[in-house]
Write a protein that binds this DNA or RNA. Sequence first.
DNA 1: GCATATAGTTTGAGTAGTCAAACTATCAGA
DNA 2: TCTGATAGTTTGACTACTCAAACTATATGC
Lengths: 225, 225
Amino acid sequence: MATETVENYLKAIYTLSGESPAGEAAMSRIAAVVGVTTGTATSMVKKLAAAKLARYERFGGVRLTSKGSRAALDILRRHRLIETFLVHTLNLDWSVVHDEAERLEHAISPRVLEALDRHLGHPASDPHGDPIPHADGTVAEPASVPLAACAPGSACRLVRAMDQREDALNFLRRHGLEIGSELTVESVEPGAGTISVKSAKGSGVSLSEAAARRVLVQVQPKRHG
Amino acid sequence: MATETVENYLKAIYTLSGESPAGEAAMSRIAAVVGVTTGTATSMVKKLAAAKLARYERFGGVRLTSKGSRAALDILRRHRLIETFLVHTLNLDWSVVHDEAERLEHAISPRVLEALDRHLGHPASDPHGDPIPHADGTVAEPASVPLAACAPGSACRLVRAMDQREDALNFLRRHGLEIGSELTVESVEPGAGTISVKSAKGSGVSLSEAAARRVLVQVQPKRHG
DNA sequence: GCATATAGTTTGAGTAGTCAAACTATCAGA
DNA sequence: TCTGATAGTTTGACTACTCAAACTATATGC
Ligand SMILES: [Mn+2]
Ligand SMILES: [Mn+2]
Ligand SMILES: [Mn+2]
Ligand SMILES: [Mn+2]
């Protein structure tokens, strides 16, 4: 197996590539996510390339090989199953489980992982709505749109919170915004750069456009009548 | 916190000291348990001494300071709660959980540990009968005697399996010897160096004296009539 | 087209942990 | 008391990872 360090780099490159239009990860972003200097990231990426886990050329972007993606998905599966366990079985709050899973994901064996998956009933997504990759390396990403793209009056269901920092998740929870919450877009103020929504339970709340881009929803079909 | 490596040395020194009459751990035993050469163990023990976790002098034995013992008990608490979780919640076999816990024990935070303890109902002992140290650093070691010390005809209850190697535990399980099993000592053959016992469920079985020294029992009070 | 800010790279040095092999203290037996 | 055998120590070298700081390519803005 890869070392804990290598696993963290693979996960960082995978998620950054997914967020970028070019499908590439920038060295400085990798360094920031992993928590090292860019010089350190450069030398590590060279090692990943030598191990055929990443493709990379000097001053060009970094992307994973299929071998590297497969490994990254495996780590993501571990991470998300552990988060699900921490919330469903141990009753920890969704705002704290990310950091816990960040360490446990490197210590769990395939045997324990599959026992966990069985115990949880093979969940499709984690407490933040992130899809859990299957053991065979496939992932089903349910269709969804950023809340920021919704027109005023839209009725939607919150399906995923992309920003998993503790305070971001606490903010959502405090305002009745959880995975599965039904909400209505009250108004969009491009001038102020805010979006006001109202959840079924909980009063209305305003989000910045940046925050609303990191909250994914499914627009509800219109009701008859 | 200490590194994973340091934690493994502390646990090794703690358990070896407990097994030795002098209350000391020999360098070669530490090296064997941790899985390094004796030279490596020597240099690591020096670091532990510098960190006030162990006391040691050249060519003398190694023992933990109170700070070191406290740390070792904390690791043992994590290890045993994790084993208990793996058996009770995830239904893994008692013969495989030791190795799994060996890695997970270094990745679990106090928050997750206490949630696990709550979820399991604050168990007093792990699947092998090893007592689980309390969060305050105390341990209750219930009285017990080695099966090897029991006279023929004794009725006892199996309370602890000290040899946690996979094949040793599988052997016991296969012959109906589990934690809590009632058993009777049928005969002791000093010539052959064996002890024959019979469990309530399961046929009789012979153990070597060495194996019987690592199985702890409580002698049952005699029944009336 | 050229300067410069930015992003990326290289180098040199350091920490943590490890091994192989040369070496040394200790203790038991002759 | 000497002599090995055994257990423990030391040294030198290696891997994996990291940073600070000097350096360099690339993209932008004028
Ligand atoms: Mn991680
Ligand atoms: Mn998640
Ligand atoms: Mn361990
Ligand atoms: Mn145990």
